[in-house]
């Protein structure tokens, strides 16, 4: 399985990458860790004439904590996230999610930014980015812009990254006070991708009630989606197991569920409720 021919560029700065992308227009595609793109190239399901390999751009690497936020470079690999003690201290779900992505070799090369830009309907990071209210930083020919996670996942395999743009970093605000996070995934036994995955963030107020909560679902529909009805049912309430179970029943309301030979639409709809409950219970416990 040999990909079609392409021209290859390996810029060392974001500016250089952006001008290469601009120069080649529609023909060019960004190559990051290659763990979604190279399989497609090998099957010749995609044959971009030009690849711009951003893997050598140092400024896209690394994980930093500053001013109440965590900034994850687009090129941080799943393994970088898995083994970042600092990040694990702030958001345990980042570590937990990384460990259930693919296998160690996939995690050593696949990148956080690549997974978000690719917007795979069964990818794990899109749900986490939505639940943690992440902000994506993009650089394009017209300079920098930011896109909230809520606006980033547009459709199947379609994110807000425009042709010519590079996703440079992802900023995640660290909530104040008591909060907890959890990611619960039902993995496909062969591919390892999420049949259903649910990420939850629960933030407690001084009165012990749920001050804010965000729940996001992946794997079940064409793109990662928030479970807003579930969130609304919990905000301002004293959380109990019963209340969470009730709220989780509303997860997936109005969603366009996927069905395939492994999991039918109604099975996925059911899993969404079960995994929403688990993720919320996990986040609630972590917040206490």
């Amino acid at each position: 399985m040999i990909p079609g021919e392409f021209e290859y560029y390996a810029p060392t700065s974001v500016q250089e990458a952006v001008s290469l992308l601009q120069q080649h227009g529609e023909d060019a595609k960004v190559l990051a860790g290659g763990h979604s793109l190279i399989p497609l190239l090998k099957l010749r399901l995609a044959s971009p004439p030009v690849l711009v390999d951003i893997g050598r751009i140092q400024e896209l690497k690394g994980i930093r904590r500053q001013n109440g936020a965590v900034t994850i470079g687009a090129l941080a690999t799943h393994a970088d996230i898995e083994f970042s003690e600092d990040l694990r201290g702030v958001f345990p779900l980042m570590h937990d999610t990384a460990t259930v992505i693919g296998d160690p070799m996939v995690r050593n090369l696949g990148t956080f930014g690549g997974a978000l830009a690719h917007a795979d309907p069964a990818g794990d990071w899109p749900a986490v980015a939505l639940a943690l209210n992440a902000t994506m930083r993009l650089t394009g020919p017209n300079g920098e812009r930011t896109v909230a996670a809520d606006d980033f996942f547009v459709d199947l395999l379609t994110s807000a990254v425009e042709p010519g743009e590079v996703l440079t970093a992802v900023e995640i605000p660290v909530p104040q006070g008591k909060y907890g996070t959890s990611y619960q995934k039902f993995s496909h036994p062969a591919s390892g991708y999420a049949v259903v995955g649910v990420a939850a963030l629960v933030q407690m107020g001084a009165d012990g009630a749920c001050q804010d909560c965000r729940v996001a679902i992946t794997g079940a529909g064409p793109k990662a989606t928030r479970a807003t009805a579930t969130e609304d049912a919990l905000k301002g309430q004293q959380l109990t197991e019963e209340l969470i179970a009730q709220a989780a029943e509303q997860a997936g309301n109005g969603m366009d569920f996927l069905g395939d030979i492994f999991a039918s639409e109604s099975y996925r709809a059911h899993l969404v409720k079960v995994f929403t409950k688990r993720a919320l219970l996990g986040a609630m416990q972590a917040a206490q």
Binding site: G34, P39, D53, L109
Partner: peptide
């Protein structure tokens, strides 16, 4: 790494 999923140039 899986060397079938890396280009030699990378």
């Amino acid at each position: 790494v899986k060397s079938c999923t890396v280009f030699a140039v990378q």
